[in-house]
Design a binder for these strands. Structure first.
Length: 291
DNA sequence: AATGTCGACAACCGCCAGACT
DNA sequence: TAGTCTGGCGGTTGTCGACAT
């Protein structure tokens, strides 16, 4: 729709002010008309993008937190490249930002492992190595912060526990392994973490499920390299890249993922419907952002 | 100090679906 | 019903700063 003479490129401070001023008076929507009426020599699309990604209230910029990273990985494994949908679960984040995160960080990891980001191999690694490790780190972070710990307990006793949702969503995996959302990744032996009947199978699953054992750090001898190092960045964590893995170690990860027994793999897709997923993520993140 | 490379981020482009006429 | 317009979305490109050589 761009026509000749329409300005492109970075927005100036004055343009931002013009857009903000117009929206504060008349609200947003009807972007093409708005661009004209606000005296902006921009396309409606450009105005919309600027508003959504930078100017709207509550927009969050900067480092993607560990929790957000985990949720992005989780939701991407469920929804694929549906950035806008994923962004709905991350308050204040734009689809553009999530997309950029995926392209710059996640694809970089795939490159390091010498596999395609969309390959089955890489997806396996993300689901069974990266996400459990990330979840564990988030939980460690939560436990080290009293404020977050309080919220964690609040989260655990709330109605969004894994078992309740899995019952409500009529899935058939009554002995499903815990979700990879950190607030549910408490020690499986801890009774207060899963205190209703529907969760009584969790401990059983924890004993036998390699994914759960991995997430809980019980495969310490195999993955000790991942938990020993204390200097792992909290901003952009990845089990293998942070360790500076050599090629043979990367291969080890690939083999580990290949070894994984799918009978034990209960993805969120099997546990939750889309609405439950949204609620779960938003509640989790809302608690986090209050801290 | 100059140059090259890379990563992160902002913005644009093209396609598509829905609303409207 | 067909055509047009608009907004939304995902893919891609451009730009800039940090870092390495």
């Amino acid at each position: 729709m761009a026509t000749g003479g329409v300005k492109k490129g970075p927005w100036s401070e004055q343009e931002d002010e013009q857009l903000l001023s117009y929206i504060s008076k008349y609200g947003h929507g009807h972007w093409e008309a708005m661009a004209r009426k606000a005296g902006l020599n921009r396309t409606g699309k450009s105005c919309r993008l600027r508003w959504l990604n930078h100017l709207r209230p509550g927009v969050r910029r900067g480092n993607i937190t560990l929790q957000e990273q985990l949720i992005i990985l989780q939701l991407h494994s469920r929804w694929g490249n549906r950035w806008a949908k994923i962004a709905e679960c991350l308050p204040g984040r734009s689809d553009n930002e999530i997309k950029n995160y995926w392209r710059t960080r996640v694809q970089k990891q795939a490159k390091q492992l010498r596999c395609d980001v969309n390959s089955h191999q890489f997806i396996e690694i993300v689901q069974h190595v990266w996400m459990p490790q990330l979840a564990e780190r988030v939980q460690t972070q939560c436990k080290s912060s009293p404020t977050i710990t309080q919220e964690l307990e609040c989260c655990e006793t709330s109605s969004i526990s894994c078992g309740k949702l899995s019952n409500d969503s009529s899935n058939t995996h009554s002995d499903a392994a815990p979700l990879s959302i950190p607030c549910q990744l408490s020690d499986p032996s801890s009774s207060h973490a899963y205190n209703n009947d529907s969760n009584r199978h969790v401990s059983d699953a924890a004993d036998s499920d390699p994914a759960w054992r991995l997430g809980a750090g019980l495969e310490a001898d195999t993955y000790q390299m991942n938990v020993e190092k204390e200097t792992i960045s909290c901003e952009d964590y990845c089990p293998w890249s942070e360790q500076g893995l050599e090629v043979d170690k990367s291969q080890e990860l690939l083999e580990t993922a290949a070894w994984y027994d799918h009978d034990y793999c209960y993805s969120l897709e099997n546990l939750l419907n889309d609405d439950d997923m949204m609620i779960l993520c938003q509640q989790f993140l809302f608690d986090d952002h209050r801290a």
